[in-house]
């Protein structure tokens, strides 16, 4: 006797659940990261004038300037309060959960990320052109961080195309192996980034859209850059690409990358 049970429904259910979990984890981590980057960015900006006040105090002390006692005291107080503020903020900076460094196949990971956002692509009427290189060496890295990286870049592309109201909405994602490196290119058909802003976009608080608000604004590419740096990779905007924006990301492939330690 032969009995056949159809388990495909169950399988689909399991898959759906898994994707849901991944999505939740990513959303949480994204939230933490954007708070973190915003706080660190604000601290950096407070630190600059404080450093200059400190420099002024040093000079006054060196000159044994007796005439400006009151001013010196005031500067001293400002300096101290600033330092305390920085300490308070430092305590608020959330830690990012540590994740294991393992060999990662970027084709598989990118496919996963695209699955996660398939509904978003559909809702926005985007065409995804996925061209993986069939033979791709692995890289050493943290899966969660890399997922976050590609999510940020895809979000960035989707937002750019929505903002510009582009009639042709396509995201092209390709992977390639180049000598000892693994390359990922993410290209959109949005308005592109003008030459003088190509370095600026990776700076904290920089955003091309003025009506976007919230914690997230201007932190997506900062996160991306940080994650790429942690993996000894490089990220750049193709200066020759005309019909939109093309991000090129490269990582050393596993066979010759030294141990990667990721510190936050």
């Amino acid at each position: 006797m032969l009995t056949i049970n159809d388990v495909s429904a169950l399988r689909r259910q399991q898959e759906k659940l898994q994707i849901q979990t991944l999505r939740t984890i990513l959303a949480e981590e994204e939230h933490i990261r954007s708070i973190r980057e915003t706080l660190l960015g604000a601290m950096h900006q407070i630190r600059q004038p404080l450093n200059q006040i400190n420099a002024a105090i040093q000079i006054m002390a060196q000159r044994k300037d007796g005439n400006n006692e009151a001013l010196r005291d005031l500067l001293g107080q400002v300096q101290q309060m600033g330092a305390e503020t920085l300490n308070t903020l430092q305590r608020c900076v959330p830690k990012i959960p540590e994740s294991a460094v393992v060999p990662v196949n970027l084709n598989q990971l990118l496919h996963e990320v695209m699955m996660l956002y398939s509904t978003k692509f559909l809702a926005n009427g985007m065409v995804v052109d996925w061209q993986p290189n069939p033979v791709l060496p692995s890289i050493l890295g943290s899966e969660n961080k890399l997922r976050m990286l590609f999510k940020q870049l895809i979000d960035n592309a989707v937002n750019a195309m929505n903002r510009a109201g582009s009639s042709e909405r396509a995201i092209k994602i390709t992977t390639a192996a180049d000598r000892d490196w693994v390359c990922v290119v993410i290209t959109d058909t949005g308005p592109g980034i003008p030459a003088h802003q190509r370095n600026k976009v990776f700076e904290p608080f920089f955003t091309t859209s003025h009506n976007m608000s919230g914690v997230q604004a201007g932190m997506g590419l900062v996160m991306s850059k940080e994650i790429v740096n942690q993996h000894s990779g490089m990220i750049e905007i193709d200066p020759d690409y005309q019909n939109g924006c093309s991000f090129k990301i490269r990582f050393p492939s596993l066979k010759n990358s030294a141990m990667v330690n990721i510190h936050e």
């Binding site: 630190r47 600059q48 200059q52 000079i59």
Partner: peptide, 22 residues
């Protein structure tokens, strides 16, 4: 540099400018 500034060998304004991020 503080001493150099006090002695007048190093410009004070340049010193402040450089000290944004020591």
């Amino acid at each position: 540099l503080e001493q150099e500034v006090a002695e007048g060998n190093f410009r004070e304004d340049l010193y402040y400018r450089l000290n944004v991020m020591p």
